[in-house]
Structures are given as C-alpha cells and as structure tokens.
Nucleic acid binder design. Sequence first.
DNA 1: ATGCCTCCCGTAGGGAGA
Length: 282
Amino acid sequence: MRIATWNVNSIRTRHARVVDWLVREDVDVLAMQEIKCKPEQFPHEAFEAAGYEVVAHGLNQWNGVAIAARHPITEVETHFPDQPGFLKGHEGPDLPIEARALGATVGGVRLWSLYVPNGRTLADPHYVYKLDWLAALTEYTRAETTGRPEVPFALMGDFNIAPFDVDNGDPAVRVGVSTHVSPEEREAFFTLENAGVADVVRARVPEGLYTYWDYQQLKFPRNEGMRIDFILGSAAFAERVTDASIHRNERKGTAPSDHVPVLVDLADAEGDDEDFDRPMFL
DNA sequence: ATGCCTCCCGTAGGGAGA
C-alpha cells in the first residue's frame, strides 16, 4: 500500500494536478491539507473518475483536510480528543475547533491528515495555539500508541516545524526571530515523537531535500525551502515501511502547490500479502 | 521593507500563509 501526504493549497485549483500524480505514482491513500473548501465544494468527480473515494473536512475557505483512498475509508473523525480551538481576537476554552485534523481507518491502518497551526509570529496568540495544539496531539498519540499498539498508526501532514537546522534552507527563517524553527516548537515536535511515533521518511531520503518552498523571491529556483511535512508512524506502522520519497518535481511546472507530496510504501500485513492472493499455479 | 507570491471571498482590498 502506497500512502502519501500533501499540502495542496486549494484542491479546487489543484485537483487535476493532484489526481494526475496519484495515478502516475500508483498511490493508494492520500492525506491532503489546506483544501481550502467545504466538503460540498470538493472536486469529488475528478477523484472518483480515477477510482478514489474522498472524505473531506472543511468549514470555510481556510485550512481544510481530506483523505482520498482506493480502499474503503471508515471510522472517520473530524478532530482528535481535546483538540484546541482558535478565533482571532478571542480567548478562552470554548473557541471553534478548526478543520485541521481528519482521522480515518484505511486498509487496517489508522491515519490522520493534520494541518498544524502556523504560529504566525513568536509573539502572536496563534503561536501559543500552535504549541497547545501539539501538546493535545501528543496526549492523544500517547493514548493511541499505548492503548492499541498492534494497530498501525500514522500522523501525516504539514507540521509547520523544521525540526533540525538541516530542514531549513531559507536564510530569512532564523532561530530567535521566526516561527517553525524555535526551540519551543522543536521541543514540541520531539515530545510528540516521544509519545510513540517516529519519522519514517528521514532515514530514506537525502538530508536537505525540502517539502516546501515559498512562492516569493524565487525560493524554489534558489532551493531555499524547508522540510516541514512529515509522516510519523507508530512501531506497528514503521515496521511495515519499505520505502519513502519526497516528490520535489511537483513544485515545478504550471500552478504548483508551495508544498510537495511525501510518500511511503507499506508492506502488506502478515498473512495479507497480495501476492499470496493469486493462484499459485498458472 | 507594511515589499516580493498565491489563494480565498467577492468584485476592492484584506486575511492568511511560513
């Protein structure tokens, strides 16, 4: 099973390009972020014509997450437990929960499409929201990975954090000045990993290969990008990963997203190997 | 540098992205 994540930056603008990539790369499951539309606005037809079922969660023109799959999508959740809300200019415990998380089970794997809050600036309430959001995700991850460790579990998406210096190639993004690289954000990321998930891509792709390049200032031609999109898998997930790739070419050409897809290959579950479903003597 | 680029809503110009 081939599973990917991609911040598409508007699925209505990008659906042809996304579906082309899914078909070309023979992808079974795609977690999308920043679809920037409501479910009824999602271009379902383009995905269905290519054989994909889609579950989308979007409340307005901001954020929005979705999962497309060539297998049935079940046990859908539109937020994780205690996921914090946010409303600009407001504080308190009862703010609206944004469309930044979508959980689903596909092919026996528990997946989340996640769009971690940006943070905006180090002094912005959005930055506090980002850290709170990651803390709640950490507790949920701990509960899942310890509660049912046998179920392959993966957090996939745009984490808006460059965990290591090598993940930031943009000289305008600097520790002490910018979000995405602060010690607090990096600590939150590592604490999340310590709750029971590991980056299953890093050891399989070259360091310095980014997943995002700003549209401005020729950031892509200059290769001044950041690696901020990740697939974090539980032990049961990680042990089935056989390959991983970052599809840099999807930043090229006409009307690209500012992010590119990240893909992993998952071996079939033991006793569920597709090869063994075939007749042995033909 | 309140800049640059792109997308949203709505039809001008502001919010958001990172």
